[in-house]
Design a protein around this nucleic acid. Structure first.
Lengths: 202, 202
DNA sequence: GTCGGGAACTTGTCACTATCAAGATTGCCT
DNA sequence: AGGCAATCTTGATAGTGACAAGTTCCCGAC
């Protein structure tokens, strides 16, 4: 068998079969992009990774466990993205919204799972931690505004900003937006639409 | 057997088994509210309706066909709701947004299917007609504003209004909003958040 | 009235899936 | 070297969507 080291072996911990956990999560992303989270099959992931049909369950417990890990990964990526955008743009709320939308477009599979709590274990510790990191990044965006609201108004503004970015992203992914009215570039489209309402805020 | 007429028989066309098509759609709503669209099972619907496991396929072709009919029903209900709200409120865009959110809360099952095109047959004629009816109701809300935008700006405002209402509804259903910051009444919460951004528009 | 024709539904089957139980392999630590 | 635990496999069960072929029943034409 040559007991071969496969792929990305140096970074992770080399197990029996390289880093199966990572390989499964990566395979899940492309599988979900193709058929959506509903069509995801643990056995299909196992086939893609070249392992037996029951191997995934060992790492994640069950299907919901795998999607919990997948959603957690997504929230961490989103928190990183928002933090980076907030830094690079000097705290522009519009750019934060555009970054949110672009994350959804670029990581569709993750985004679609992240906000579907019936698919994963909602009370997982790692998951809730990653969710709070994302929430904090959003809150920072509103807090950094020139005329930042305080008290309950701050929460409302935060939710309003989150809602419009999230809604645009969701509608775009669901192909609900006609491309003949808004074009086919999500970044330009998001900037046009979000600026309608972000602008008065900052 | 008494060849009994069952339930709502006078309204529809009395078939073999009453109105199975309607019964299946109704059962689907409660099933989806319990387990989400992914957990929906045609065989479970058949059991609830007291028919054999293959009966649903006869009416809807396949699972996607049933969800196509379900989504169509949802778009028609939403279009009706928005038209009624627009009338009753004298064309308030804020009320239209609140109505949108409340539709999502009150008809969660329909709403969750409507914007998940991978679940149904996207090119169904009845479906696209109902979708356009909904879009028209939204457009009318923006067009009725005191300082209604024209040209491309109208489309952007329409999409902005749609986005924030849709985003708030989605986040609320996904339990992403903390109830300790915004309360647990969706109508009041929606009014607070949407007014943040609808207000400057009208 | 009866008698086809067709719609509504049933029965049976196949391939696929998630989940569980129990065994086999392999790296690692003492 | 020996043992141990984690990784992975094999096997089996119950449930699912889809398909094919049969059965029941209404309804309109003759």
């Amino acid at each position: 068998m040559l007991s071969g080291m496969t792929e990305e072996d140096a970074a992770g911990r080399p197990y029996h079969h390289g880093n199966l956990r990572r390989a499964l999560l990566t395979a899940a992303a492309t599988a979900i992009e193709d058929s959506g989270p509903a069509g995801l099959s643990l056995r299909d992931l196992a086939r893609r990774a070249g392992v037996s049909h029951a191997a995934p369950a060992h790492h994640f417990g069950d299907k919901a466990g795998l999607l919990t890990a997948f959603a957690t990964e997504g929230f961490e990526m989103l928190a990183d993205t928002l933090a980076r955008v907030g830094e690079e743009s000097g705290g522009s709320l519009l750019e934060l919204g555009v970054g949110y939308v672009m994350f959804a477009v670029r990581h569709r599979a993750h985004f679609e799972v992240m906000f579907r709590p019936e698919l994963f274990h909602r009370d997982d510790a790692g998951l809730t931690a990653a969710q709070q990191r994302t929430r904090a990044a959003l809150r920072a965006g509103v807090a950094g505004l020139p005329a930042a609201p305080v008290g309950p108004a701050a929460a409302h503004s935060e939710l309003a900003a989150w809602s419009i970015a999230h809604g645009f992203a969701t509608l775009w992914l669901g192909r609900a937006l006609r491309t003949d009215q808004i074009g086919d570039d999500p970044e330009a489209a998001a900037r046009l639409v979000l600026s309608r309402l972000f602008a008065p805020l900052g």
